Simulated scan of single mutants.
Amino acid sequence: MLGMNQIKTAALLGLLSGVLVLGAYYLVGNEQGLYIGFALAAISSFSSWYYSDRAALMAYRAQPLARQEAPELYDMVASLSDRAEIPMPTLFVVPTKSPNAFATGRDPEHAALAVTQGILEILTREELEGVLAHEITHIRNRDTLTQAVAGTIAGAITFAGRILTLGALYGPVTRDDRRGGNAFGALFLIILAPIAAGLIQFAISRTREFAADLGSAEITGNPLALASALEKLEEMGHQIPMNGNPTMSPLLIVNPVSTKGLQSLFRTHPPTEERIRRLQELAQQKQGTPVLV
């Protein structure tokens, strides 16, 4: 299952880059657009690889957390990291009452794990362990890099639409002095491409969340602890929204906004009810009891 998720994620990332390249090509109208699209995709991928941790931490105003400020939290993360066989990530705290957590970084050796003040106040020790193990699994699986690349490319698509459309309207960009490629190219980059990019980005996030939930259950041996935590976070998160850059929301452990109906297409995470149901089924399987349908 993990291998299939990785293949699906790689395909979605390729599709996301393809949207950027295709949009630039249609807007400019010749091979120059392809070069622009490839250049933007390459720059976006490199910048997100190298600066992903800083961008996410800055987006949520995360502050470094010293060991003397939270020794129990440090010991908990150190123990879970050891079980997951990865280096302990650097810890940060986000000054908000909204309960949430996220991990970021280009690889396990350059990873950061951030928790909000709110999540430390409402979860029990076992529930918090489940959440931290979920984020540590993201680090171990390198999902943090995948989400950073996806978010950066999605942002580049929106940015390219604005910049290249202005160029098409106010200046010649093709060799025969035509102003841009065509009206469809402008429409694609202004409206259709950002929507498509968002859908692909969210699909990548949903693909990785189930795997991280499973990893948490394996590390802690307690699927119900994470299930209980998710239930609390879903309820409290809607009461106290998490403010920050929307492109970074897939990094969070629960969706920071409520999504129903057609808005569910833009959900950054699988439905929390489904995640809880799977964890409860896993707990029943571990106990050797039949799963009730």
Rank of each mutant, 00 (worst) to 15 (best):
T207H: 09
R54S: 10
G3S: 15
D177Y: 05
L20W: 00
S228V: 06
L262C: 02
N222R: 13
R179H: 14
A42S: 15
L27K: 07
L230W: 06
T174F: 04
L120K: 07
R67S: 09
T152W: 11
P172V: 14
S52L: 00
E126D: 09
L132A: 05
P108V: 01
G33P: 00
A10N: 13
A186C: 14
S17C: 15
L214A: 15
K286I: 10
F202T: 09
A193F: 09
S98G: 13
N141T: 08
R61G: 05
I200M: 11
M236H: 00
M248F: 12
R61M: 05
S264I: 08
G185C: 12
Y26F: 10
L57D: 03
S17M: 13
A101C: 06
I163F: 15
A24K: 14
F92W: 11
Y50R: 14
A148P: 07
G237A: 01
S81R: 00
E274V: 06
L230E: 02
M236V: 07
I219Q: 08
T96C: 02
Q117I: 01
F184A: 07
R267C: 03
G37V: 02
G244N: 08
G118N: 10
V21T: 07
P223E: 00
T90E: 07
Q32R: 10
M4K: 09
L27H: 00
S216D: 02
G161Q: 11
R125Y: 08
I7L: 12
A41M: 03
L166E: 00
T220E: 03
R106E: 11
G130Q: 07
A42D: 14
R125T: 13
I253S: 07
N245H: 03
S44P: 01
P270H: 12
M1I: 13
A112N: 03
E126R: 14
A227C: 07
V131I: 08
H134T: 02
S249A: 11
E231A: 14
P250R: 13
I136A: 04
E109K: 11
A78L: 14
E281F: 04
G3K: 15
I200V: 15
L252W: 03
V21D: 12
R54L: 11
I253Y: 02
A41R: 00
I204D: 08
A283V: 13
G215V: 06
Q285M: 15
I119L: 03
R277H: 05
N243F: 04
I190S: 06
I253H: 00
E273W: 05
R83Q: 15
A55C: 05
Q201T: 07
H134I: 09
S258M: 12
L57I: 03
P64Q: 11
F188L: 13
L12Q: 02
L27I: 13
A229R: 01
T174E: 03
P270K: 00
I153F: 09
P172S: 09
A84C: 10
L91K: 03
I7N: 01
S216K: 04
A70E: 09
A156K: 06
P172K: 08
